[in-house]
């Protein structure tokens, strides 16, 4: 009974038998040259597709309904970001302001700026909510508490959101065609390289900060090498070493702190 292996061997033998006829010496270099050439063509083309074409295709570009000037508004309010992006009485975060908030100041246009006039005529007068596109919107499976980070850990808005308060125009919103989320979540850089803490908003970025905080408190008094291994264990199995939980700040239980 012959197996597949036997057949393969037989094929190999046949090939070897034929080889001397086809493999002429002068063609040798040319063939390997063309092989290398095509390899490079394939390589470069796919690199181009992967690095340049793919990101272009992946994201659709959308304009915000109103070109919003953050810098202008920040200058005019007293409490910085929290003047408009505030915490509600129950501690939940209001996020993007609703029309009712805007109306407090913009019941009528205060300037003749075309964007403000557009805002007043199209939204305020019709009492229609502005369909803002939210750069930082996370997938629905993510649970994130602003209160825990801003109030409890006293973090700055800028740490995650960047210097958006200094912007004078609304950026183009690039929407991922697969997930429907903003490009800001993965980061502008398609390779995922970040320079600033606000360049990406993926789970790794949460973990990075949380691990740092965990290391700071947990590894005190540990030998460097011990600390190194323990940190790996801490990140992989939160709470396993010291009974500490994944959120060192709140001492909460693992997965469902962040995942719904």
């Amino acid at each position: 009974m012959s197996t597949n292996d036997d057949k393969a061997k037989a094929d190999a033998l046949t090939d070897t038998g034929k080889q001397p006829e086809q493999d002429k010496p002068e063609k040798g270099n040319g063939a390997s040259g063309s092989i290398l050439f095509f390899f490079l063509v394939g390589l470069i083309a796919s690199l181009l597709v992967g690095w340049v074409v793919f990101p272009e295709l992946l994201y659709s570009k959308k304009k915000q309904p109103i070109d919003f000037n953050h810098a202008l508004h920040v200058d005019m309010v007293d409490e910085g970001c929290e003047s408009c992006h505030f915490f509600r009485e129950d501690g939940s975060f209001s996020g993007v302001p609703e029309l009712a908030q805007c109306i407090e100041c913009h019941e009528e246009a205060q300037t003749d700026h075309p964007e403000e006039i557009k805002f007043v005529t199209q939204y305020v007068e019709k009492y229609r909510e502005v369909p803002w596109l939210v750069y930082s919107r996370q997938p629905n499976c993510v649970f994130f508490s602003h209160a825990a980070h801003v109030r409890l850990a006293e973090m700055d808005c800028v740490t995650c959101h960047g210097p958006i308060g200094e912007s004078t125009h609304s950026r183009i919103y690039e929407e991922n065609r697969i997930t429907g989320l903003s490009r800001d979540i993965w980061g502008r850089n398609i390779a995922g390289i970040k320079r600033n803490s606000w360049d990406r908003m993926k789970m790794d970025d949460c973990a990075e900060c949380h691990a740092e905080a965990a290391t700071k408190t947990a590894s005190e008094g540990e030998a460097p090498i011990e600390g190194f291994f323990n940190n790996i264990i801490r990140i992989a199995f939160p709470g396993s070493l010291s009974g500490r939980k994944s959120s060192v700040q709140t001492q909460n239980e693992a997965c469902f702190v962040c995942h719904k």
Binding site: F38, F39, V41, S46, L47, G50, I178
Partner: peptide
């Protein structure tokens, strides 16, 4: 052979590009 090498080059390039990793993540 060149075709195969083109494919191999393409595969190598794709692997070295963010495409598969980003797609996996998005999916």
């Amino acid at each position: 052979r060149s075709f195969l090498s083109f494919l191999i080059g393409g595969a190598a390039g794709t692997t070295l590009s963010p495409l598969p990793w980003k797609l996996t993540d998005d999916l």
